[in-house]
Simulated assay, not measured.
Amino acid sequence: MGTQLKKGLATLALLAACGAAQADPQVFNAALSGAAEAPPNGSAATGDVTVLFDIDNHYMTIAASFTDLEGLSGAAHIHCCTAVPGDGNAGVATMLPTFTGFPANETSGSYASFFDTSQASFWNPSFLANHGGTTAGAEAALMAGLNAGAAYFNIHSSVYPSGEIRGFLAAPIPEPAQILMLLAGLPLLFLRKREN
């Protein structure tokens, strides 16, 4: 096989891998607690959330559960973006007064929903205005905040109206199969570099 053909195949393989990675929805998880609030509170409530955000196809899915709130559930949002990743407070990025259909007046519950992020109604009007007044600007800002660890999911309650439990959203650690797939591309890079 000629050197140019090998280089071309290696380049195509890398471009395909990069293109596939960009097109895939991104997943972010968080464990929710009162200790993660700012300032922390004494709530023994817990919860978890998984957010799947596909910025290319303009949708987000949210799956959350919570248990043992001291107050009754009132609202849930994604807040973005804190000045320091994993710390501090930020304004609400998503719809007001709460996610459509989020369980109200409950101490425990679960939630799952799908949202079209190309709709202005998904966004807090202030967040939208602060990011160019477009849904594309809001999507890009939230994705940047999520990737930076500067966005959090918050559940507000009657006892803790500013937030009873929250957690900063983070991408999960890659599965072993994903790591192996990434490592599989290293020989192509090595081969390409060696031939240059």
Rank of each mutant, 00 (worst) to 15 (best):
P103G: 01
I173L: 15
I165T: 03
H156Y: 03
W123N: 03
P161C: 02
Q119F: 06
L180T: 11
G133R: 07
A150I: 10
H131Y: 08
S157Q: 09
P103Q: 03
M95C: 03
G86A: 08
G133H: 02
G149Q: 09
N105R: 01
A104I: 11
M143V: 08
S126Q: 11
T94M: 02
I179T: 13
T135S: 11
I155W: 00
E106Y: 00
G132R: 04
V159M: 10
N124Q: 08
W123S: 06
R166A: 06
N130Y: 01
A104P: 08
F114I: 13
E164S: 04
T94F: 07
F153K: 03
A112D: 05
A171K: 14
E175K: 14
M143A: 14
L180A: 15
G163T: 04
S113G: 11
L128M: 06
A150F: 09
Y160F: 15
P97G: 09
A140R: 10
S157N: 02
E164I: 03
N89D: 14
G167W: 00
G101Y: 01
G149R: 10
P103V: 01
G109S: 00
L146A: 08
A140L: 08
T82Q: 14
I173D: 15
F153P: 01
L142W: 04
F127H: 02
T135Q: 11
N154Q: 09
I173P: 11
S121P: 05
A104D: 02
F114L: 14
V84A: 14
S126A: 13
S118P: 03
W123V: 04
D116I: 07
P161E: 06
P176A: 15
L146F: 12
S157T: 13
I173R: 14
H156F: 05
A170C: 08
S157M: 10
A129N: 12
W123P: 00
G149T: 11
A170E: 12
S118Y: 09
G145W: 05
A171E: 14
N105T: 08
